[in-house]
Design a protein around this nucleic acid. Sequence first.
DNA 1: TCTGACTAAGACAACGTTGTCTTAATCCAT
DNA 2: ATGGATTAAGACAACGTTGTCTTAGTCAGA
Lengths: 348, 348
Amino acid sequence: MQQDERGGKVTIVDIAREAGVSIKTVSRVINREEGVGEETRARVQALVDRLCYRPNVSARSLSSRRSYLIGAIFMRVGAYHYVGEVQVGAMRACRRAGYHLGVEQVRPPEAVGGVQGFAEGLRDARFDGVVLTPPTCDDPEVLAAVEAAGLPYVRIAPHREFERSPYVFMDDRRAAREQTLRLWNMGHRRIAFIDGPADHGSAERRRQGYLEAMRDRGVEPRPEWIAKGEFLSLSGFNATEALLRLKERPTAIFAANDEMAVGALAAAAKNGLSVPRDLSVVGFDDTPAAEAAWPRLTTVHQPTAEMAEAAVEMLIDGFGDERFRARVTARKLGYRLVQRDSAAPPSA
Amino acid sequence: MQQDERGGKVTIVDIAREAGVSIKTVSRVINREEGVGEETRARVQALVDRLCYRPNVSARSLSSRRSYLIGAIFMRVGAYHYVGEVQVGAMRACRRAGYHLGVEQVRPPEAVGGVQGFAEGLRDARFDGVVLTPPTCDDPEVLAAVEAAGLPYVRIAPHREFERSPYVFMDDRRAAREQTLRLWNMGHRRIAFIDGPADHGSAERRRQGYLEAMRDRGVEPRPEWIAKGEFLSLSGFNATEALLRLKERPTAIFAANDEMAVGALAAAAKNGLSVPRDLSVVGFDDTPAAEAAWPRLTTVHQPTAEMAEAAVEMLIDGFGDERFRARVTARKLGYRLVQRDSAAPPSA
DNA sequence: TCTGACTAAGACAACGTTGTCTTAATCCAT
DNA sequence: ATGGATTAAGACAACGTTGTCTTAGTCAGA
């Protein structure tokens, strides 16, 4: 069997010759199509395994008009931590289904090229479908470009137009509610909340969850307990300083994201408060900053990788379904409360 | 001109017909090959632009045996921040040269599949070449798999076997030296260093840079000024607590990475020291944690994206060069000191 | 035994490029 | 004018699959 190594490239022809069948039959076996006898299928499959045959993706996609490529679309590949998380999950789902993952970037608005360059890239990348991550999943121009290219797509955590495409999401509101109740159940009653930017959907949902929890427990949070924030650590720092100056100082602070929680930790330290002894601080997202912080942040894990995985799954499942876009579906994924070191019962 | 929109797909045949030339001539124009007259070239190019023709990558790679795909190889796509940075830079270089970026992951050792699955993925992804990021760039099994696949590759910041392939790097030692001197020039004399893990090449180079700077200024750092660390925030915290207990307390601390610097900030706060008034803290890497920290960390920017960009450039430039592997080259990239808020002249 | 329906498998033409040859035209030095 | 280079462009066959037809062969029911 010297042809195993003929230049390292084993083609479908080699398998067919060796098995004594036509290449079409081999093709049928590989693609799990019907029309092949039990015994023939086994013989071909064995040969495929033995010779380590892998179909040539270019030939395959040229012929079948499928690229076996899923695109993940980001606004700034470098900026957010979840880019990596999304890719992990997406790659998992891709590999399971024999697909590969390509990465495409919509240049942020301030850059040249903009959505133009993105549309071009989309065209010749020839994805079979794409997954849109926030904030691209709510950008009208991006959506238009993807739809113009005729690509099926699934959105991750969209904020708007839920009926426009299938999507995956997590229940921010409910998670925030539980996060708040966790503090409540520790014995905290004066719980403050550091809000995110006004136009940020997830920030709003988290605030609602906080409010809901407090009201559930019969407490109407005072307006001054809800501090404005910008999802940046400095804003968390400033908000916390203000909160600590209140005459009835909160015993716990729930920041709408981890970064602001880190700022809150700094403000506590500056004011001579030891966390969690004198003040509890919790965050949201479970980014690496939460692990890096000191004390390590108690937070809520957002299942980013799993959401991406689910999105790719939905995408691949939907292929071949003409009414893909029409049959809008959604999948909700669970969060997970992460207990670390920044929250404890109030000492008073 | 209604054939512009024939199903949205413009092929080389359309251009050829419209221009009244053979498809081969169009192909020559597109690939900037010679053998086409000035006037013909212009006419074809105009048509290409007008009809928005983009070559079909599958057909192209099937025929030319090139995939126009560069692979970026990571150990854990989700774990490190620089994954995103690397992709940004790599995509920049790819797009410039008409390539696309694929992402492949070597499952970390503890996962099933390991290098096996990676080798398979490599095979059918059909990259034209790959860029290896740390720590995959020093993993013997990964290197073996890539070489077995016959793929040209460039390594980013390797620690060992520099003669084995082209690579890009930055001068950690020199950057650390400058970082140290920056503190010195502010007036600090008792400068402590928090080291990284013993087997980590970049940690070692940074320590050497620190030592070199101190000795240049005629100071032999006392052994107790060099604290062990593990590149994690907790180790930075502990190291700092120990340093602050010294009778001659350092006025500045240089942590070998940002994460430990964040831990140092927390330790300072816990000990009632205001940074940078009572203690200066500087880090290294310029990760998002440095921005998120409070006060924002003065650090050294590692040009991760640029290194990836350079790596992809080297790779693409090397295509067609048979002796690619043999002609080992290296490219050094510059770092940048980032001045933020965690370092200032000593108050004493 | 014949017919029609079904099954397993093959023949053959795409798919949209690029690589290798070949040809026709032009040019310059003889 | 003549021959050898040089240049611009075309003809034609890959590239390695999949899609669409077609063809034997088998089986059940009349």
